[in-house]
């Protein structure tokens, strides 16, 4: 695939469990194209989050290869610009307000200028939080926090967005709204999306649905 944003081949990962090793991933292959959205479902403990951590370069596989836009460089510096991550628990920095949390993604790159501030304001407007921009995370609802996390993930205009059960801590209505927002923003910016979810309805809204079982994908 020439415009592949993400290419994973034969990813394997196992963890020590007492005296034994527990194989979590047994040779996972995955290709995600530019602007494509892919959902990954699976039972609890099936290795969805582990796979996402490998795809994000946060953890190293025991075997297999990973490439972002054809490059094997999945280091910390490239991660900051190439991909955005949305977590189930939001992980907003409590000492910062919504706008400062969004800007933190750009601060880490060391390029905080007027354009970056305008981008943060634009994203906050897109997620409907212009009025709440100066509120601390403790002053925001769960849905609002996750929308801030989405805006932060998109701050550096990533080519790939990884979302790990982003609606896991939200009620159904709020969760639906966040997924709509996530898909809409990714489609608008042609950002590839890998969505890990338990929710079949949310999964169906992506271009492609994958099911993780026994450490590898089973189409379903």
């Amino acid at each position: 695939m020439s415009d592949a944003i993400l290419t994973a081949r034969g990813l394997r990962k196992s963890y020590a469990s007492g005296d034994r090793r527990l194989d979590v991933l047994n040779g996972v292959d995955l290709d995600v194209a530019k602007g494509e959205s892919v959902s990954i479902r699976g039972e609890s403990g099936s290795g969805k989050s582990t796979l996402l951590q490998l795809l994000a370069g946060l953890d190293a596989p025991d075997a297999g290869t990973l490439a972002w836009a054809g490059s094997a460089d999945t280091g910390t510096k490239r991660r900051a610009t190439f991909l955005g991550i949305v977590f189930q628990s939001f992980y907003l920095i409590p000492e910062l307000n919504a706008r400062e949390n969004v800007l933190m993604a750009r601060r880490i790159l060391g390029r905080l200028d007027a354009a970056a501030r305008a981008r943060a304001d634009e994203l906050l407007a897109k997620v409907g939080l212009t009025e709440r921009a100066t509120h601390l995370s403790s002053q925001l609802s769960g849905g609002e926090r996750q929308r801030v996390a989405v805006a932060r993930a998109l701050m550096n205009s990533p080519q790939l967005l990884l979302a790990d059960e982003p609606t896991g801590n939200l009620d159904e209505t709020t969760g639906d709204a966040v997924i709509e927002l996530l898909l809409g923003l990714c489609a608008e910016s042609q950002t590839a999306l890998v969505l890990v979810t338990h929710n079949a309805a949310h999964a169906r809204k992506t271009h492609r649905q994958l099911f993780l079982r026994g450490g590898s994908f089973a189409h379903g």
Partner: peptide
């Protein structure tokens, strides 16, 4: 701890 993890995930060294 989790915020420190997040900073690493965002690209912090």
């Amino acid at each position: 701890t989790r915020e420190i993890g997040l900073l690493g995930a965002l690209g912090g060294q």
